[in-house]
Design a protein around this nucleic acid. Sequence first.
DNA 1: AGGATAGCCTGCGGGC
DNA 2: TGCCCGCAGGCTATCC
Length: 291
Amino acid sequence: MPELPEVEHLRRSLEPDLVGARIEEVSLFRDDIVLRTAGRPGSPRHSLLAGSTVARLDRRGKQLAIVAEDGQGLVIQLGMSGQVRWAAEGRTSGGNDHVHACWRVRDGRGLIRRLEFRDPRRFGGLSPFDSAEDLATRLWSRLGPDAVDSPAHLLTERLLLECRGSRRRLKTVLLDQESVAGIGNIYADEALFASGLHPFLLARRLTRSHAERLVQHIQRILVEAVHAGGSTLRDYVDASGRSGSFQHTHQVYGRAGLDCRRCSTTLRSGLLQARTTVWCPSCQRRTSGRP
DNA sequence: AGGATAGCCTGCGGGC
DNA sequence: TGCCCGCAGGCTATCC
């Protein structure tokens, strides 16, 4: 499932061919994938970048923005199973392939290609915006600082602020995109394990040294995952259809019942926020963490 | 009012 | 072999 590393890797894989390209035509096969904000229906009567030239690709957390030269654009959320990829030549999209939108693109060399948005489970969607201000105030105003692009000290302060006096569990705060943007279930479990912190730790018990250690591991793991092309569990591929490889280095995610790679204790799993959570009962204590 | 929870949606794997 | 059920979770609305 796409989290920050998958979206950032996708952004980088799209950049060379999409920036500077002109969108000649847009086909929308399902109106209801056009959203006003995530999960909320918007107006399908939007150009969706038809006739625009792409100026740049931005990312905040798990969201990707295609920004046109005139400032308008499109935020793409991949949700659980979303993909943005170049269509195989000669193939037509639409029908039973879960391709919901398709852009006919003339790239910098004058070649015509087709970019497809595919999302079988439709947790994702497309949110058009009119300007940089519209993007910042309506779509991205509720996202916290980006987990990778923000300086570590800023993330640490943000995390401490979110946790202060909070009755939430630590992992719940990590998954909250308003506190820090980009962390999902996989990387939350991985970062907590690496930090020796228990996912069910009460947030208000997080100390400054906990927070500093956690932020350090969050950023390290996310950056490493970007370089590995993300984690491919089932659906994720980049714009060229390539899978990631970071799933091979997961320490806890998907390993419930197996031995901890650090101490051989059997990894435990439980539910938090209706999400499977895996941790090592020996490496991750519910009270104070490791030194 | 902060925090927990339901619901959206489809593919797949395990069990019978 | 084939069917059915449970699980996977990012995000919002709603309830408590």
